[in-house]
Design a protein around this nucleic acid. Structure first.
Lengths: 342, 342
DNA sequence: TACATTCTTTGCCACGTTGCAAATCTGCTG
DNA sequence: CAGCAGATTTGCAACGTGGCAAAGAATGTA
């Protein structure tokens, strides 16, 4: 574990430390003989460049931070997988931090007791409110891309789907399969979160387009987007005097919980209650019944996010851009039109 | 983004750079007045210590690497969640790398083109074979803890469950619920992987203990432990002349796929086929039917792994230890004894 | 007042690397 | 063979920090 340095290599290869560095960094003008000697010495000593030292010199660390609420939420782990892979292709490695729905911690990660030059950039998938994002001084923050949330204000690069339209499509799909009493699960108590608000807006617009009356009883909040919250929400919906014949969940994970609740209550999916989610996590493809959903292409999100982040790292002052990633409604068994009596 | 350094703070606070460092590091003998001035200057300039520089000086980075095959496999993402949280409590942050079932990349991550002093330690959940582990020169590697795989050879710290016993319990549980034709899914083509072999051993021993004849047709390989592999394996089992009445899957994810295949084939779980997995991922708790499994406590694994790693970082030469984490059989609906005819 | 003791503050240097620019060497031209 | 361009190699310094030990200030003691 004792560190082998350029000096050691230089000594063994009988060249200057600087030359070793040249070889390591593929500097053009190095004679074949010297290169061979240096490489041999590197090999013999097991020399590895000390990235910390290199980074101190160059100002780059080759590390990115990916900040998500919880890595064990499938949407985020699937996204992380894509991000790590794409980052690797760009020569970066990825540190992952979880905010765990802790507002204070999120703000801290963001504005920076931790902004310590250890990372070249940040991919941030925040829960913080728009106000808080707006409160960040862009100049004091590392190159940062916001993922999947919030409205674009021109201060930070931003990658997201069109939440309002996605929700509209999901709801309209339920309407198209003959549903009339459509619930929405996932409104957030904190009204300043953008994503749920946009999805609710899309849901309401779809109802209006279909000439359906919105019903406050059918709009159920979910403090977090976990299976448990979907479960609880669906149970509550099923106890209504006139329960819904379809549930639009703001995430697939909510939908997984809702599906379980519906079946625990002895109702059939999709016959009695149709369910649709958003995210397209693999779990939904194997669920019984398989879950209809609005698919977000995480590979595309990761790819665009990294392109954008790398560009910003190289060119910190370029104007912020917003990228809207397309989504796709995927119809599976949980909304499949079956023999319906009623 | 221009870096504010101790020098800037020192200039503003009218003290030496060294004094700023003393304040930042809570050195005991600093007068209240100076401390106040320095803190004020830090605040005014927005100074944050440059971790790269600090790390170069101290030799510590505060970063750990967690290396897993795929972060979007629920077992690993749930483990990662625990690791990140526990690491954070120890003052470390966690970089995640995926080997993606790529052997070459795994070896590389391990032995080190990447062992570049950027991390203080490694948590490694490997797929590599025992031979490869044995081939690593412990002296050249960062402090490392092996997670959940392989037999203990005294060269690396190692944390795992007793795979053989876990498999034995799972199989015995199936026997106890009246199953007689019990399949096993998850044998690995590469015979040198330890975990699947240990699980197969436990499975076979349980059959023997129950006086049941092993049947090669019932032992199905799975190249990877994904839902798809479980699905394919189960489908194959169901086409046998005498299909199994129970399937023991070597991971919950395999079991999720198997459950789907069984139901796609029109068989009932657990009535026609009982299914049990290993891991206890949350997905299984919400599955329909809920999945019986052998639970591994990921919080305990993460906690012990970090304790162990931190100890090793502080004391690199201490003898390697092996920690066996307890497991628990959890009976849920997928093996629940129901009316069985036949 | 002189001296010991303790508290504060500081200067110097190194961690391992690479940018810069200068030094040295090679081969070629005339 | 001088002179020159280009190739190759090198020394120096610096990135920002903290360890070390010493310098300087303050306090207590005789």
């Amino acid at each position: 574990m004792s560190q082998v340095t350029v000096k050691d290599v230089a000594r063994l290869a009988k060249v200057s430390p600087r030359t070793v560095s040249n070889v390591v960094n593929d500097y053009t003008h190095v004679s074949a003989d010297v290169r061979r000697r240096v490489l041999a010495a590197i090999d013999e000593l097991g020399y590895r460049p000390n990235l910390v030292a290199r980074n101190l010199r160059t100002g780059r660390t080759g590390l990115l931070a990916l900040i998500v609420p919880e890595i064990d939420v499938p949407y985020f782990s699937e996204l992380a997988r894509a991000v790590i892979d794409v980052a690797s292709a760009h020569g970066y490695r990825v540190m992952i931090d979880q905010t765990g729905h802790d507002h204070e911690r999120e703000r801290q990660l963001l504005t920076g007791s931790d902004r310590t030059m250890l990372f070249d950039g940040i991919l941030f998938s925040p829960l913080v409110t728009q106000d808080e994002i707006d409160g960040i001084d862009a100049a004091t923050v590392l190159p940062m891309i916001l993922l999947g949330e919030h409205t674009f204000t021109g201060r930070f690069d931003h990658i997201a789907i069109d939440n309002e339209r996605a929700a509209h499509e999901a709801t309209t799909h339920l309407v198209a399969t003959g549903r009339r009493r459509i619930a929405a699960v996932g409104v957030q108590p904190r009204e300043t979160y953008r994503t749920p608000r946009q999805r609710t807006a899309g849901y309401l617009r779809a109802l209006a387009d279909a000439g359906l009356q919105p019903d406050d009883d059918l709009v159920v909040p979910a403090a977090q987007y976990h299976r448990r919250n979907g479960y609880d929400a669906a149970r509550r919906l099923l106890t209504l005097d006139t329960p819904p014949d379809a549930i639009f969940c703001y995430s697939d994970l909510l939908a997984m919980g809702a599906m379980r609740a519906v079946q625990d209550a002895g109702r059939r999916i999709p016959d009695d209650v149709a369910i649709v989610g958003i995210d397209d996590i693999e779990e939904g493809r194997y669920a019984i019944p398989s879950l209809s959903t609005v698919a977000l292409d995480k590979d595309v999100i990761a790819t665009k996010a990294l392109e954008q982040l790398v560009r910003r790292i190289e060119e910190p002052d370029r104007p912020a851009t917003q990228i809207v990633v397309p989504h796709t409604l995927i119809e599976r068994d949980s909304t499949r039109v079956a023999d319906r009596t009623g």
